[in-house]
Amino acid sequence: MKLKIILVEDDPDLGMVLKQYLEFSDFEVVWITHPEEILKNKKMIDGYQLAILDVMLPGIDGFELSKEIRKTSDIPFLFLTAKSQSIDRILGLKLGADDYITKPCEPEELILRIKNILRRQNHIKEDIIKIGYYSFVPEQFRLIYQDHAIQLTEKESELLLLLSKNNRRIINRKEILETLWGENDYFLGRSLDVFMTRLRKYFQHDERITLDSVRGVGFKVEFPDNRS
């Protein structure tokens, strides 16, 4: 079952982009452009797991809207605003916001913040992938060996997640490039080789893990795994 988010954003372009990106990230989203819709029917947020509130809204700002929501609901909410002054951030947190992000924001960052909130609310469980003696936490871009944590880059994490889904098979280089970068390009291919070299180094403590190049095709991935 998809987790449900209510988005209150009056900017039509930003609202559409956020709605599409959230839905692409497997959330169910209701997008509202006028806060009066919630004020007239506060029960409409029942059943939702999170509210994203733009601060600069017509008629009533996001801060005041959050106060009204809190009278009847304990739904977690995140403020989305162009304001960056610390006083606004402090005010938002004092009003009970679970997080606060300024515009323009990277959609990936917004998704991570949302998932962190929902994880704290026990709506989602952190996904941990066992790769041999290692534990891979995709949401945190972390690879853990014993008591040592390796902080991966976003692309390293995306690549490792793709490889973990293709264990014990040959995965085509073109497929990797188009999945991670959206195109099959020579220079991106060189970057892919660099990332694969890094991953091999990260996994040096478990000789059962192999990331072998298959000339003219791609890579053969093999490791003992156990998703938990």
Results as ranks from 00 to 15, higher is better:
152 L>G: 11
49 Q>N: 09
46 D>Q: 08
149 A>G: 10
132 G>D: 04
23 E>V: 12
145 Y>G: 13
56 M>Y: 02
86 S>V: 15
132 G>H: 04
193 D>N: 09
139 E>A: 08
176 I>F: 02
19 K>T: 13
88 D>L: 00
218 G>E: 03
59 G>E: 09
154 E>F: 05
127 D>K: 07
138 P>M: 04
113 R>S: 12
172 N>W: 01
76 P>E: 04
191 S>I: 12
70 R>Q: 11
152 L>A: 02
20 Q>G: 15
86 S>L: 07
181 W>N: 13
3 L>Y: 06
89 R>P: 15
85 Q>G: 15
174 K>H: 14
35 P>R: 00
107 P>K: 03
125 K>V: 10
25 S>F: 03
191 S>H: 11
218 G>N: 04
177 L>N: 11
98 D>S: 14
70 R>Y: 04
187 F>C: 15
144 I>K: 03
37 E>H: 08
40 K>L: 14
204 Q>C: 06
91 L>V: 06
10 D>L: 14
113 R>D: 08
19 K>H: 05
107 P>E: 07
84 S>P: 09
148 H>T: 15
96 G>K: 02
54 D>V: 09
108 E>D: 15
65 L>F: 07
16 M>L: 14
48 Y>I: 07
24 F>D: 13
59 G>P: 10
42 K>A: 06
39 L>H: 08
109 E>G: 10
158 E>T: 05
117 I>M: 04
203 F>Y: 01
131 I>A: 10
187 F>A: 13
40 K>N: 11
56 M>H: 04
220 K>P: 09
94 K>M: 15
111 I>W: 03
48 Y>F: 14
182 G>C: 04
205 H>T: 06
70 R>M: 05
190 R>W: 10
42 K>H: 10
104 P>I: 03
84 S>D: 12
63 F>G: 10
163 L>Q: 06
45 I>K: 02
38 I>P: 11
21 Y>A: 13
226 N>S: 15
174 K>C: 10
174 K>D: 12
137 V>A: 00
29 V>Y: 01
218 G>V: 07
71 K>A: 07
182 G>V: 04
67 K>F: 04
19 K>C: 12
131 I>P: 11
60 I>L: 02
162 L>F: 07
220 K>L: 15
84 S>G: 08
55 V>G: 09
205 H>P: 12
155 K>E: 14
192 L>P: 15
23 E>H: 05
200 R>Q: 13
141 F>Y: 15
72 T>D: 03
31 W>L: 11
195 F>M: 13
39 L>Y: 00
114 I>H: 05
212 D>Q: 06
106 E>C: 11
184 N>R: 03
40 K>G: 14
126 E>L: 10
